[in-house]
Write a protein that binds this DNA or RNA. Structure first.
Lengths: 285, 285
DNA sequence: GACTTTCATGTAATTTAATTACATCGGAAT
DNA sequence: ATTCCGATGTAATTAAATTACATGAAAGTC
């Protein structure tokens, strides 16, 4: 609960003088955060220690700490909460909601991500003989994206969104190969099979999926993303955005691990793109 | 602009010691707001006046005022700042940075997105005889994802990542068809051609691309995303996440526009998936 | 109804934090 | 090589916040 709400809620438990302080703060919160305790005391017509006691009553360490909390309450930043789109939302409303809930999802994912496992996954990927990305449905595009990224690293990388091809590829895998299986729910049967087959053929299987899911059980390493999204009911949105960010993280870790001389490879790939694009200056003016 | 962004932006104009201060603050912003100037100076291994001068350089009145501003920047719980990954970042550092800069990018995109054009795009899409999604490279996965989404709406939808197929498809388009061209830079020659061809064949061309780019010039409707990312130099990361969110927005607008009876279609698609998945309860306990 | 106790509040002293003024060091330019 | 300027640190000063203590008002007790 933020401090402003707290003040409003506990207004009854205040003494007479404390109430005067509360009134002044609620009336001009912006001024308060730029005032000294002396100035505020004068405004509220109470003594400085009274203001200090008021701050302590609100579980802050003192007046400066209180101002910090107040400043945060007043920050005009957007509350990044998961707001669901409603039937009668206009374009402005649903646009805002989708942006916000995506950001909220990323924030949640960020807080729950397991760095140690990420690091281990990067380890495994950098040592891979061959990397395969498999996904179905919405996760197929994530797999494609991953292929696009890792392809730049000059590592054998494949990506299939066809069950049969995935299966064949998994059967042909061997020790040193890394198979990345992507599924938000972790309950896609075909993909679980792929993971099992790959493991039986001594490949390392990294799962980008839900913790404790059937798929997770088949994986060597599980990168779970805690994104509260029910893809049984709704279209996958935030979940696959989080997956993509995770791919970015793995790719970045890969790049850093390989060291600076390896980065010439990246430059080559970039240079190769130049011919296919209009020059940046071409269209100015 | 919030203080955190300001620090990141003006990192070049800092002196050596000021930079040390900036680094410490960016590394532990939450700790900073609860530290005294002495503690922070010690952490950064500089003198107290240096910290003070640093605060002044950022147009704050002094250290306490700076903390206030910082607190407001952090109010959402997350510092949404575009921070670049450095050579010697550990997994925790680059993971945090990538999450944060992605969120920052979404925040920027959200603030600059043009709702009116979005609404018009939804208009056009709902009335389309056929929808085609075209992208190359990283944008190809975005196109795939879009296909996956719009496919659920029971509308003829195609997606090609092959230049020849794209070209043939564009040539065969006609009035009432909608072609969506996706490119962050808007300078991919082949895609510009596709847009031109599609327009010549009376299709409506929606561009998800940079404002005023060569591609934008060929489009009927331009949905521009202001994501500061140089994909000539770096791998596309935040840019394509923003594109995906835009796709989500268009898909959502589409769903809402079609009204409630249409949503039975979505249910059908969802139900069809059930057989391919393990039941939610299957793996509990 | 006077006395005591307790709680709220204010005054003044103390401590802590932040700022300013000044000195010193190092690097760039002459 | 010397001088000058900017950056940085040290020490003094000032400002702010907190603590300790004193006063006064209200409630309860004899």
């Amino acid at each position: 609960m933020n401090v402003l709400e707290k003040i409003v809620n506990s207004v009854n438990s205040f003494s007479k003088s404390e109430r005067k302080v509360a009134d002044v703060i609620l009336a001009n919160p912006q001024i308060t955060i730029h005032s000294s305790i002396a100035a505020l005391a004068k405004m509220a017509d109470v003594s400085e220690p009274t203001v200090n006691r008021f701050c302590r009553r609100l579980d802050t360490k003192g007046f400066p700490d209180f101002k910090l909390h107040l400043a945060q309450s007043l920050a005009n930043g957007t509350p990044y909460v998961n707001r669901h789109v409603e039937e009668d939302d206009g374009p402005d409303a649903y646009t805002a909601k989708i942006f916000e809930s995506t950001m909220a999802a990323l924030d949640a994912a960020r807080q729950n991500v397991d760095i140690i496992t990420i690091n281990r996954a990067v380890d495994v990927l950098t040592q891979a003989k061959k990397i395969s990305f498999f996904g179905l449905g919405a996760s197929a595009s994530v797999a494609h994206d991953a292929q696009n990224k890792f392809f730049r690293f000059n590592v054998p990388v494949v990506c299939f969104d066809d069950i049969v091809m995935q299966r064949m590829s998994a059967i042909n895998s061997s020790e040193g190969d890394v198979v990345v299986c992507i599924s938000h729910t972790g309950r896609t049967k075909n993909l679980c099979d792929i993971a099992t087959i790959a493991r039986e053929n001594d490949a390392t299987v990294i799962g980008i999926t839900a913790q404790d899911s059937p798929l997770a059980k088949e994986c060597t390493l599980v990168l779970s993303l805690e994104v509260p999204e029910d893809t049984d009911m709704y279209m996958p949105m935030a979940s696959r955005v989080a997956q993509l960010v995770l791919i970015d993280i793995l790719a970045t870790g890969f790049t850093l691990r390989r060291g600076s001389k390896f980065r010439e490879n990246l430059k080559k790939v970039k240079d190769s793109l130049r011919g296919s694009r209009f020059d940046k200056k071409d269209y100015h003016g």
